[in-house]
Simulated assay, not measured.
Amino acid sequence: MTTITTTRPTTSDTRRQSHVVADAVTMLRRNLLHIVRYPGLTVFVIGAPVVFLLLFVYVFGGTLGAGLPGVDLAGGRAAYVAYVMPGILAMTIAGTAGGAATTVAMDMTEGITARFRTMAISRAAVLAGHVLGNTIQALIGVVVVLGVGLLVGFRPSAGPTDWLAALGMIVLIAFAISWLAVAMGMQAKSVENASNLPTPLLLLPFLGSGFVPTDSMPGWMQWFADYQPFTPFIETIRGLLLGTPLDWNPALAIGWCVVIAVAGYAWSMAIYERKSVR
């Protein structure tokens, strides 16, 4: 007779898990206070996408919008507001990476992270606090930029379910980008270097479907635009908010988020562990 045994979590395992969660909450609180005390980073994260939104809508919107399929010259600007808004939201999320990397690099260069390594604090929780704080900052930025978009004529057709799905997608993208940003901040040799490392992320919405359809690009660039992560990010948000075809974009977007988050986590933890044994 075969006896089937099950393994139950021990009391020590439960305490360890609760300890990690408590440490992560403490680190999150610390990073939220840092955001409040240093509002300049948040202002830049929100201000830059707003400037780009106003620039592209009011300066280039009439011409670029008229080039969209099925849009005449007279309705170009209104059509372009709808088209460009998902790309601006993606840019807002990408823009938070610079702030996160800078904050992490400041902790590294000022010895704060080294002090945490000598304390009875979960190593994953130290990094998770940065990630969760940056994710919240990204959501605040998205809400503000979306509000400006509504003021300049953005009119999404999404229902409640679509809005919830779009919110979930935005949170997932912000969470993944935050892990990558934390790893970049830990890898950087200085605070100045940390602020520059995430810059390519800001370019990806431009080199995707954020501002113009990818089929208007040269062949070699179109291939890159179609397969880089920000294009499915943008097309998923666009489809949920405006009802455009989703196709395989949600699956690709989720897949890219998993890859980016896992890579960022592994990279940052490897650096943390390496510097802990020095």
Rank of each mutant, 00 (worst) to 15 (best):
G62N: 11
V143E: 01
A22Y: 03
A22D: 15
I136E: 04
R274D: 13
F206K: 01
M1E: 12
V259M: 11
T214K: 02
I112C: 00
G208N: 04
S195I: 05
G239Q: 03
G87V: 06
F233T: 11
G210T: 08
A253D: 07
D23K: 04
G153E: 06
M269Q: 12
N249H: 15
D247Q: 12
P86D: 08
A66C: 09
D13N: 11
Q187I: 11
T118D: 10
V45Q: 13
P205C: 07
I271N: 05
L41I: 14
A266M: 12
M186P: 04
L64E: 01
L246I: 10
G159Y: 03
M269P: 07
I136L: 15
G40P: 03
I88G: 05
F175W: 14
I234G: 05
D13T: 12
I46T: 08
A261L: 10
D226K: 12
T92D: 02
H130S: 03
L64S: 02
R278T: 14
K275W: 10
V71G: 01
G219N: 09
L201R: 02
G87Y: 05
N193A: 15
C257E: 06
A24Q: 10
T214P: 00
T231K: 09
L204M: 14
A22E: 13
T199I: 11
T199P: 03
F52E: 02
L33I: 09
G147P: 05
T96E: 04
Q17H: 12
A158N: 03
R274K: 12
A97R: 02
P160S: 07
G255M: 06
D72I: 04
V145W: 05
M85N: 02
T26R: 14
S209E: 08
A181R: 01
R8Q: 13
E235C: 00
L167H: 00
A79K: 00
A225D: 02
L201V: 01
L127Q: 05
A261M: 07
A183W: 11
P69S: 04
S216L: 14
Y80D: 08
